[in-house]
C-alpha cells in the first residue's frame, strides 16, 4: 500500500511537470500571402477579304485588332482541279513542309497582307460548280523574336 501511494504521488508530480512539455514542441513558423490580377481585353478583330476573279482566288488579311499577329493559309480543292498556289510568286508568302503558306511579316494592327493568289486550272473540270476552300489561321502568340507559336492554336477562318 505504501509503495502504491508513493507511485501515485510520483505519477501526479510527473503529470504536473508534463504540462510544460507541449510548448517545447511548438516551432517558430510564419507565412504571408499576396494575390494579383490583370484583365485581358480581347475585343480584337481580323478581317479576311477574298476576291474571286475568273479562275483566281485572291486573299488579303487585315488585322483590325490592337495586337500584332501572324497568319498562314492552306488551300483545299477537288482532285480534278489543279491549284497553282501563290500565283505570281509573291515573296511575302512562303510554303512550309506542313503545306501552309506563311506570311513572312508580323501583321501589325491596321495592316494588311499582300495578296496571296490561288490560280485554279479548270480546263479538265466538267462540274458546274466547284468548291475550293482556303483555310486561314491567325495567332497572337508570338515569342520575343516575333515568331509564331502555332502549338497553342490559332483562330481559324474558312
Amino acid at each position: 500500500m505504501k509503495k502504491r501511494n508513493m507511485l501515485m504521488a510520483a505519477l501526479a508530480a510527473v503529470m504536473v511537470l508534463a504540462l510544460s512539455v507541449p510548448s517545447a514542441l511548438a516551432y517558430f513558423t510564419t507565412y504571408t500571402t499576396a494575390k494579383g490580377t490583370v484583365t485581358l481585353h480581347l475585343s480584337d478583330k481580323t478581317r479576311i477579304v477574298e476576291e474571286v476573279d475568273d479562275s483566281q482566288k485572291k486573299v488579303t488579311i487585315v488585322n483590325e485588332g490592337e495586337v500584332p499577329l501572324r497568319v498562314r493559309a492552306l488551300a483545299f480543292a477537288p482532285d480534278a482541279v489543279t491549284v497553282q498556289e501563290n500565283y505570281g510568286n509573291n515573296p511575302d508568302w512562303t510554303k512550309a513542309d506542313d503545306g501552309y503558306w506563311y506570311y513572312g511579316k508580323i501583321l501589325q494592327p491596321g495592316e494588311s497582307t499582300s495578296q496571296l493568289i490561288f490560280f485554279l486550272d479548270l480546263t479538265n473540270v466538267e462540274l458546274e460548280e466547284i468548291n475550293v476552300v482556303v483555310v486561314y489561321e491567325a495567332t497572337y502568340n508570338l515569342d520575343n523574336e516575333g515568331e509564331a507559336d502555332w502549338s497553342t492554336g490559332g483562330v481559324i477562318n474558312e
Binding site: T46, R47, E50, Y136
Partner: peptide, 8 residues
C-alpha cells in the same frame, strides 16, 4: 468580294 470578320 467575300469579307470574313472574326471578333473575340
Amino acid at each position: 468580294v467575300t469579307v470574313y470578320t472574326t471578333t473575340y
